[in-house]
Amino acid sequence: MSVLITYLIPILGSTVYTATPLIFASVGGAYSVRGGVMALGLESMMMCGAFCGVVGSYYTGSVAIGFLSGILGGMLIALLHAILCVNFRVNQVISGVGLNLLATAMTTLLMQVIWGNKGTSEMVASVEGTLGGPIPILNAQSFNFFVMVAVVALGWVLLFKTRYGLRLRMVGENPKAASAVGLKVHALKYSGVLICGALAGYGGAFLSLDQLNMFVRGMTAGRGYIAVAITILGRYNPVNIVLSALLFGFCDAVQIYLQGQGIPAQLIQMLPYAATLIVLAVGVRRIQPPAGVGQHESD
C-alpha cells in the first residue's frame, strides 16, 4: 500500500500530465487522417504551437492569449500543409517532413530575432500550479486536463455522430465518391487539417506554457512523431487515442522517475521512443488507415 502511494500514484499523475499534449496532437491527427491527409507534420505543428504560445504570452503577459497564439501557430503550419497537399497534390510524406524541418529552423531563427538567443526564450507568464485537491492523479493536473477531456469527447461525437464527421470520413475513405455525391472535398480536407493544426498547436503550447514557462530549441523532441504513432495505434478514434497516449505517457513518466536511480540516463530516455518503435513494428500492422489517404477527388 505504501509502495502504491509513494511510487505508483505519482507516476500515474505524471503519466496523464505527459500524455495530455500527445492527446491534443493525436486527436488532431485523427481529424486530418480521417479527412484523408497524413498527419506527419504534427511535429512541426506542435513546435510552432509551442513557439507561438510563448511569443503570445511574452508580448501580452496573458496565458490565455498565449494558448490562442499557440492554436494559430499550429494552424499556420496546417494551412501550409493543406495548400501543399490538397491544392498542389504534393506527396504528403514529403510535405510533412519538410514542414517539420522548416519549423525547427524557423523557430530557432525567430528566437534569435526576438530574444537574441538561439537556445531558449525568456521566461513568460505560464499556467500556475496544479489543481490540487484530494483526488489522487487529478490533483497533479492543471485546468488543461478538462480541456483535454472536452477535446476528446467532442472529437468522438463530431467524428462519429454528426453530419460533418460522416462527410469528413467519406472524403478520407474515398474522395472520388465524396465528390460524386456533391461534397466539397477540398473544403472538408482543409477543415480536417486545420483542426489538426489547432489541436496540435494547443498541445505544443501545453509543452511551453503548462509543463514549462519558456520555449527551448527543438522542445517537442519528436513528440509529434510519437503522436503520429498514437494516432495510428488509436485507430483514428479519439477515445482509443487516449488509451494509446496513456501508454506512451506511462513510458515517459517511468523514464523520468528512473532518472537518478543509477541507470544511465541516455538508456532510460530511449524508453518512449523504443516503445514507439515496438508499437509501430508489432501493433500497427493490422490497422487499416482510411482507404483514401493521399488520394484526390480526380486522379
Partner: peptide, 15 residues
C-alpha cells in the same frame, strides 16, 4: 464510388 467499410445507409445518405 462506394466506401466499403461503411454501411449501405451511410453510403446512401452522405451529403
Amino acid at each position: 464510388m462506394l466506401t466499403p467499410v461503411m454501411t449501405v445507409t451511410e453510403n446512401v445518405i452522405v451529403g
